[in-house]
Design a protein around this nucleic acid. Sequence first.
DNA 1: CAAGATTGAGGAATCAATCTTT
DNA 2: AAAGATTGATTCCTCAATCTTG
Lengths: 160, 160
Amino acid sequence: VDYQKPRTSAVILQQYQMIHDIYVLLDDGDRRALRPFGLTMAQYRVLESLHTSHGQRLTTLSERLLRAKSTITRIIDQLERDGLVVRTADDDDRRAQRVVLTPAGADLLERARGVHQDALNVRVSAALSVPEQEQFRALLNKLHDSLVDTLDEMGQAVAP
Amino acid sequence: VDYQKPRTSAVILQQYQMIHDIYVLLDDGDRRALRPFGLTMAQYRVLESLHTSHGQRLTTLSERLLRAKSTITRIIDQLERDGLVVRTADDDDRRAQRVVLTPAGADLLERARGVHQDALNVRVSAALSVPEQEQFRALLNKLHDSLVDTLDEMGQAVAP
DNA sequence: CAAGATTGAGGAATCAATCTTT
DNA sequence: AAAGATTGATTCCTCAATCTTG
């Protein structure tokens, strides 16, 4: 018996694999919902973030969406090529680019969001009651914030 | 006001983005923990699955790990090249391949698992108390099973 | 030098097509 | 025809290096 190195409980391992699988399952449904609009999940999340907060920098998007800066650059390239967003110069800092949703982008987001949300709603509502959803949300929040904290302590690592 | 099309509540949307972010955050930590062993997360999960159930078919691995069959083929290629697993002929069905862990593979898994679990343990324990973890696990389980069910109803879609 | 952004190279995952066996 | 598995082409993402500006 080893008294010195407490091993991870089976509960935690199950949790992790479960989170992983749930992510994959949700991702699978998302891709199906967004495909008719020609959007990947990453592109969709960028549009959503821009809708919430206009004129973000690429670096800000990288931090919020937990993607490498180069990934964001390429996603914006695609979206701009499709006429959904536009890069704008930053008056205060000539290094930075501000990204703005075009009318076409806002329109596409609006339509995609409807389909995406309905599909998500069906799947989650079938699984959890409203009180359970609230309870679930609270636990996710707690875990999320804690993970972000430990990430910060190690020096930003996701998007170098 | 629109009485006909109930939209998704903000709660559900927050949940989804939270799950997505948590996945990315955990994945980031995993990659750091497994890199010294030369393993990706997908490879690690294959080894784990083979340790639990010996001699699985590639198709079975594809279904359990929610990855496309071609993805599994390539992961097994890599693991076999590194001498961690071996493809074995199936006596009953000459189309099928049974995958088995080699002693080297079992050994590497053992060592990687220790580091991976400790790293995960630290991060999750810092976030949730033991009762919370148990509560969390129950909700994840419920959501997971429900998502699998709705996936099955739509005809297998993840790995065509 | 540090920060914002981009580019090239490489890995990982998927789709569609193909081959063999049932 | 259908199932198990593989291959080729393509997309997505990341890392490391680079360019410009603060």
